[in-house]
Design a protein around this nucleic acid. Structure first.
Lengths: 244, 244
DNA sequence: CGGGCCCTTGAAGGCCCTCAACGGAGGTGG
DNA sequence: CCACCTCCGTTGAGGGCCTTCAAGGGCCCG
């Protein structure tokens, strides 16, 4: 609150980490989903709320023609299902092996009656989801390829805190990243290659990158294109009008 | 008939119970904002919830470099402010002359204590906002110019019910539409011109269009490009991979 | 070893952005 | 009344970013 983080800060977890709902799930049995399996489908009756114990999940929406948008990625400690009315409005798929527990909505409601202190947290969760969604709209509407990838990498860096503070874990495949950022796998790949060439990133183990220059990464995420190539400057595709 | 009063519903066949907070605002005094003025600023302390009595409002977010994203448009009966935590996370600007009333968050909280039946409606409102945001992400990430404009027109057509059922009101200027759809004013203009040429739309009075073929409009909004030109078919920019 | 999946890299083209100019609507003042 | 300005919308020409299509290599597993 006092640490006035930039209001326009993009690097923000899309689905916020569950604040203190965890205790609610402690008594629930855990289940396991194998990599690639679907935890729940878009359109199914929304009867449960889920808490991820371990593993990674992608949440997806589909267009009528089969194209896909990945709303976001969930990891350990994340919660999903609070924002549903009667039916799930997207599907949740396991990226790797996922351990999770679920709670019936009725039971959740009973808990809320019992412990009304959870209620404002529920609201906060929904508000965070709205805010994160708007940030993502900003990314999708105005950012170019490099800015999108760098924003995503920063987000991953902050979400999955690594011991050395500079390791980015990308458990998902390129197609997932592409469908999350509104790009193609080829452009994602090319952009990452370019970041490595520029010395911003270093490929580490499988599904991992080391951040060499965090400041450069942050600058590339937010700022106006400024290609490292000295020639550039002309015609950024996502420049647009500027106000104020 | 369901007078959905959520913030920026995208055309989708959702069955919503009408969220009617209106009674809460009946005893509040009304205020007026002139066209172009700002009702509240991004970053201000969020102390009030607003209800639009008449007129049109745009809600905006800005990137550090001054570019703009219009999250959505508000009209008569719409509510804004429920999704804020401590500070407004976007600004609200009057498009034309706007009459509105406000209620302090504390007072709202008191009303909720008094009439707990409003609580689930509050949740529903937030969930609609999340759902609408995700719909808009889909538009921004995967739809081309024609699909974006047609989706927007359909949304306006349903939101502002006209007597003849086929009049679209566009009180906002082209720049507003462009910043809402992630395009430029030129592309918005060209797309509208093309729709008129194809006989889908008919320019009516200022800020109005008549819908000649609603089915064609709907098809153009959702489907795969299929240019009316017989030659086409090659290379849609937003085709992408298709699943399932 | 063959097959599938994933990632990368190259070449060509298209959609949309950028820059530019023009016309109309509305307001102001001479 | 008309010149003048500003804002808004339209239309044209050119170029760039990203998509599309294509090919190849690495890895894993049966």
């Amino acid at each position: 609150m006092l640490a006035v983080s930039n209001i326009h800060e993009i690097a923000q977890p899309l689905v916020h980490q569950s604040i203190d709902f965890a205790p609610l799930f402690l008594r629930q049995a855990t289940e396991t989903a194998t990599a690639g399996s679907t935890i729940f489908f878009d359109g199914d009756a929304a009867r449960h709320v889920f808490s991820i114990v371990s593993g990674n999940v992608r949440i997806c929406r589909f267009l009528p023609d089969g194209r896909r948008l990945i709303i976001g990625f969930l990891g350990t400690g994340d919660l999903v299902g609070l924002s549903f009315r009667n039916r799930y409005m997207f599907s949740a798929e396991a990226i790797d092996e996922v351990v999770f527990s679920r709670m019936g909505k009725r039971m959740l409601e009973a808990e809320l009656q019992l412990v009304p202190e959870f209620r404002p947290q529920l609201l906060s969760h929904l508000r965070d989801e709205i805010s994160a969604g708007q940030d993502h709209m900003l990314l999708l509407s105005h950012k170019n390829a490099q800015q999108r990838v760098c924003s995503f990498l920063l987000q991953r860096l902050e979400k999955t805190q690594s011991p050395d503070g500079r390791t980015i874990h990308l458990p998902m495949v390129r197609a997932d990243i592409a469908d999350h950022l509104g790009m193609t796998i080829e452009t994602v790949s090319r952009t990452l290659t370019k970041l490595v060439a520029k010395g911003v990133l270093l490929p580490a183990e499988k599904h991992q990158f080391k951040v060499i220059s965090r400041s450069e990464l942050a600058r590339s995420a937010d700022e106006y294109a400024e290609d490292a190539v000295e020639g550039g400057g002309a015609g950024d595709r996502h420049a647009g009008r500027r106000y104020q």
